[in-house]
């Protein structure tokens, strides 16, 4: 790969809908469902955007981070709200590691005299 190339190209985000080129039927179902998921329901549109932003950080998808930072701002989320969402992502990821410490301890204790 040459120096000015990258696996992640910002402009590719705009081409998201083009995934239908190789498989239109499934893409249609996916985008319909995707659109429906983000409509206000029991959760507001803004809450959904902030959850998406947190998940985007957990799955570390740069496209999703760009998209849901902007969506959250559009929906009136403050900087503090967005950063708290990122902390939740971090806390769950960290917590998920740490809680396995119990498994480690169980195993260690079992192996110990």
């Amino acid at each position: 790969m040459s120096k000015d190339q990258s696996y992640y190209v910002p402009k590719d985000l705009k081409k998201f809908s083009q995934i239908s080129e190789f498989e239109p039927k499934l893409a249609e179902k996916f985008f319909d469902w995707y659109g429906e998921v983000f409509k206000a329901g029991a959760l507001s549109e803004r809450e959904k955007s902030l959850i998406a932003l947190a998940v985007a950080h957990a799955v570390q998808c740069p496209y999703c981070i760009d998209a849901y930072t902007e969506e959250s701002m559009k929906k009136g989320a403050s900087e503090a709200m967005m950063m708290e969402a990122v902390h939740i992502s971090g806390a769950i990821r960290g917590g998920a590691s740490m809680v396995h410490g119990v498994q480690m301890m169980n195993k260690a204790k079992k192996l110990s005299m």
Binding site: A40, S44, E45, R46, E70, E71, M73, K74, K75, G76
Partner: peptide, 14 residues
């Protein structure tokens, strides 16, 4: 009105 280069979200929700 948005404070930056983005569009406003839903008027009713805001």
């Amino acid at each position: 009105n948005p404070v930056g280069a983005f569009l406003p979200g839903s008027q009713a929700e805001l």
